[in-house]
Amino acid sequence: MDFSIIADSFGLYIQGLKTTLQLVFISLAIGLSMAVPLAVFRTSKNRLISGPVRAYVYFFRGTPLLVQMFIIYYGLGQFEIVRTSFLWVFLKEAYVCALLAFTLNTAAYTTEIIRGGIAGTPIGEIEAAKSVGMSRGLMFRRIILPGAFRRALPAYSNEVIFMLHGSSLASVITIIDITGAARIVNSRYYSPYEAFLTAAVFYMAITFTLVWLFKKLEHRWYAHLRPQEHSAAAAA
């Protein structure tokens, strides 16, 4: 191991770290806000509403993220309409395409995760909500969705980690994220261990931070499931 290589290119890695975090954070934020309404549509009994969502989720979960990214980055330029439209200013940028692919991808996975959470709602809760006269919208807001989020949290934490790992694909379309920085360092010094192991350490650090954050969140959200700590003290 030649640590001077790592020290010399540390600035590049930090720049890559920023890009990675930005890509992951933006796509997760937009993906999640898309996924909530989509999951509600997906559970609709009306096939015209649930059908398109089902097809969207099926496509994005059934194909590799790399291919989705290629379709958007290389593929869209095939069409004259796209190239002459005002959107082309954005769509010819690798960064925008990566972001678009990641967002659509994570939105599809998250839709399925939240759908699972909604499907897991105890029937008694829905009956109770109906019997006090809640409207469908109110029932979703106050009863179904809060419970669904709680049930979806462990699966969603996995999705966040997968998205972090998936974001390394951005380096394939010229974006300098952490992996992109490593690829530059490798080609510059021809030292794959220093280059890629450094990137690996960065990813591990982010992964463990995320795991730790989600543990904290689970601790909060599952507070009602923990044995009460103060009751023993009160009894004594």
Binding site: L164, H165, G166, S167, S168, L169, S171, V172, T179, A182, R183, N186, P192, Y193, A195, F196, L197, A199, A200, Y203, M204, T207, F208
Partner: peptide, 13 residues
Amino acid sequence: GIPDLVLMLIVFF
């Protein structure tokens, strides 16, 4: 903890 792509590049290069 490590992305598949990075592992693959480590093994390959």
